[in-house]
């Protein structure tokens, strides 16, 4: 009966994962491997294709002050506008992750302040994990899989923009070698969210209890879903250490952008999350 409960939990989390996250790993891998005939993404590999891609997805224009427009080169403007639309998408993704978190059995019964803390510290880790299925060694899908942006293009942007994605590619290529599927991912994301060691938590015990149940469910899931993959559970959990470092570095880069880019403005939700984070 206990393992039946753990299977039911896995099913439930997989269902809410499918409900809240529009681009699944299965769909992303089909697009990346060219297995869907109707879904060939537009490739952004230079500034010209970036402009075309922008027009294609009708990305919202970042309001620019007129007097600055003449001071700045057109390319600078494009980079800022692109990262501005990345921020809007990230904010949307935070709200999707929040809905997913609320669907984890027991989460909404936790102290509301602890729910906030778990999201504040967990959400960027979750977003990085969710980026992995969209990436391969050559680039990443963006805009719900409509666009493929090459890794080389991201590396060619001016500093510090060019340093933003490279660590995520390095992580993702290794993470993808574990070959988790969407149902495994759903449980892993819940484990990340339910971390009892986030700074400032008021009531750790119920969080640890919830996480323990999800961990059991993940362990069972991986054994059943990947019977030939030795120590997969341990390998997946080890990724959580890399994730914390990635988030620390990412937040530092964002701080740097705030100090160096005149026209940089951080989305209010992302500001809330990153303020006093690490």
């Amino acid at each position: 009966p206990e393992s039946a409960d753990l299977r039911a939990l896995a099913r439930q989390l997989y269902e809410s994962y499918l409900k809240y996250f529009p681009l699944t790993k299965a769909k992303a891998r089909a697009i990346l491997s060219g297995k869907t005939s109707d879904n060939t993404p537009f490739v952004i590999h230079d500034m010209k294709s970036l402009l075309e891609g922008e027009q294609m997805i009708n990305c919202r224009q970042m309001p620019m002050q007129e007097h600055r427009r003449s001071d700045m080169g057109i390319m600078h403007e494009v980079e800022l506008r692109f990262f501005h639309s990345c921020q809007s998408r990230s904010a949307e993704a935070v709200s999707e992750v929040t809905e997913f978190a609320k669907s984890i059995p027991g989460f909404v019964n936790l102290d509301l302040n602890d729910q906030v803390t778990l999201l504040k510290y967990g959400v960027i880790e979750v977003l990085i994990i969710m980026m992995a299925p969209l990436m391969n060694k050559d680039g990443t899908l963006i805009s719900y899989g409509q666009i493929f942006m090459t890794r080389e293009f991201l590396k060619s942007l001016r500093k510090p923009f060019c340093e933003m994605m490279e660590p995520k590619f390095e992580f993702s290529v290794k993470f993808n070698m574990l070959e988790l599927d969407d149902s495994d991912m759903a449980l892993f994301l819940a484990v990340i969210i339910l971390s009892g060691d986030r700074p400032g938590l008021l009531n750790v015990k119920p969080i640890e209890d919830l996480q323990e149940t999800v961990l059991h469910s993940l362990e069972l899931q991986l054994k059943m879903n990947h019977p030939d993959s030795l120590q997969l559970f341990a390998k997946v959990l080890q990724k959580m250490t890399d994730l914390r470092q990635l988030v620390t570095d990412h937040v530092q880069l964002i701080q740097l952008l705030k100090e160096t880019e005149v026209d940089w403005c951080l989305h209010p939700l992302l500001q809330e999350i990153m303020r006093d984070l690490y």
């Binding site: 949307e92 709200s95 929040t98 302040n113 906030v116 209010p268 809330e272």
Partner: peptide, 20 residues
């Protein structure tokens, strides 16, 4: 609470995601 107004709103909002 003031520091995390939007997160609070997202968490307490019962069904549809709030307009960001």
């Amino acid at each position: 609470k003031e520091k995390h107004k939007i997160l609070h709103r997202l968490l307490q909002n019962s069904s549809s995601p709030v307009d960001l």
